[in-house]
Design a protein around this nucleic acid. Structure first.
Ligand code: FES
Ligand code: FES
Lengths: 143, 143
DNA sequence: ATAATAAAAGCATTTAAATACTTTTATTAT
DNA sequence: ATAATAAAAGTATTTAAATGCTTTTATTAT
């Protein structure tokens, strides 16, 4: 459902959120190393997130990527919309060009329920929620 | 979650199921045309399904692909297992190498629910169920 | 037996995602 | 002002999935 880059994006934003308290900015290399992802993929993806105002960046020395309190409070669907596009949760489970009740595929009714449940999850989970579980040692970003 | 080829496979098997009553066998070309997919992808994928005994084939004139009553009664997860592998429903939602409760990612608890729901759907829906909705004009394989 | 048919199999190409590299631009500390 | 730093941007390569093509093998009807 989500691209690899999108999953990486969610982990990167959680990492940035964990640096919010201290106010530290983080460089591409640091982020990529921590979440165990390709530096280049991370760099490009972070730019996308900056454009979508999901995170912020500053150039030059002492620069880097960072997140604001408001952004930390955003649901992770914002990250998904920015990286994979707004269409993720509207796609047909059997690959029809358009998911619709009036011209539905054979699994539409049941698939829609699952897909909507996933969408709701992404709408409800805030970056800060996920960050907390990591900070508390209840969840991990690598492994 | 499912590959494009896997979605194509489900549609192809539903098509074969619709030919069960008449006993007709279907050729690659005919199937590909009906479900609006690449002939070559369909050919290769059908071979995989034959090997996995999800469908059957016969060479030579009057040959083609067909399905037995028993196979028509199978759940679509058999198709998924054959084409995309048995691991589809065990994958971590954030891309960790292994999904496990003891070393979980930040969305594990909620994601697992959704993923399991989708798995249950694939275990419960039989080829014949989906075939019926198409035959009754309630659902479509293309469009 | 022979020819025709259709799947099986193997290899090649295309496409899109992911990853890698290089250059440019902005910012800050000196 | 200058040099150092780090993101931004653009281009190129790699990888895996999907698609395309060609040859082989098995089967059936004649
Ligand atoms: S039409 Fe296939 S999921 Fe809605
Ligand atoms: S660990 Fe990520 S879904 Fe289970």
């Amino acid at each position: 459902m989500l691209s690899l880059t999108c999953k990486t994006a969610i982990k990167a934003v959680i990492y940035l959120a964990s640096k919010f308290e201290s106010g530290e900015k983080s460089g591409i290399k640091e982020i990529a190393e921590f979440i165990d992802a390709s530096e280049h993929t991370v760099g490009k993806m972070l730019q996308t997130l900056v454009k979508a105002e999901v995170i912020n960046s500053a150039k030059g020395p002492t620069g880097g990527f960072f997140i604001t309190g408001k952004q930390k409070n955003q649901a992770i669907i914002k990250i998904i919309d920015a990286v994979d596009g707004k269409n993720v949760f509207e796609e047909c489970g059997l690959g029809l060009s358009k998911c619709s009740a009036t011209h539905q595929c054979p699994i539409h009714n049941d698939y829609k329920v699952v897909r909507d449940k996933f969408k709701t999850l992404c709408q409800q989970k805030k970056v800060s929620d996920l960050c907390d579980t990591v900070n508390d040692g209840l969840a991990y970003l690598v492994g």
